[in-house]
Amino acid sequence: MIAEIWNWLSDSAHWHGPDGVPIHLREHLQYSLIALLIAAAIALPLGLLIGHTGRGSFVVVAIANSFRALPTVGLLTFFVILIAPHIHSTGTATYLIPSEIVLVLLAIPSMLTNTYAGISAVDPAVRDAARGMGMRGSQTLWQVELPNALPLIFSGIRSSFLQVIATATITAYVSLGGLGRYLIDGLAQQDYPQMASGAVLVAVLALLIDVLLAAVQRYAVSRGITGRYSRKRIVDPAEQQAMIAAAPLT
């Protein structure tokens, strides 16, 4: 199997032309990034707001719980059938728009719940001190709550990204491009090396992006919080929750 994958991947024909790896990789990243940015633009401010004010946390819980139970493939096929006939366009937009909607919907919960959990898990004494020293609400949010919530926010972004990368693979089934093409086409053509190579590419992509984000996180989060000094490991309930929230859906 490894030899088959190696042969497929080292065949230069698979790295050129409209069906080449670079094109599909670019498509895959494009679908994922668009969805992630839109989702972040919705989820992060909402999570900050709900966490800071403490109002509307039931929204977060409701969204997180209901979305987890929805099957991704069902959601994707449903939206394509629902929306595609109404888009009168040539090219991929017909399938791209419904797919992006699903990707955005799937990317929101992790970021929203983690941002909310991160903000609300800030030690009440710390928040009290910030207020008592005369910080305004916005100063408390940006200077104190956000920096302390960063580890959880990052893990939310990471699991959302993974979710989107994984689901973007499935969009090949509804006629889009991306690395998922090799999996779906390989299956149709009974071409296992192609399928397996595509699967390896997707897995490597997901892994690289996660490692990259982990590196950014390490750089962005204060050493005082990452506790590279901390003497004891404490199980933080919020972290526990965030870790559970990171379970794969796709």
Binding site: A125, D128, A129, G132, G134, N148, S222, G224
Partner: peptide, 22 residues
């Protein structure tokens, strides 16, 4: 309120230091 608080020192039980700041 924020101006009042800035001219009053405030010390609480668990110090409430900002963990992310030196």
């Amino acid at each position: 309120t924020h101006e009042l608080r800035r001219q009053i020192g405030y010390v609480i039980q668990h110090a409430g230091l900002f963990p992310h700041r030196t």
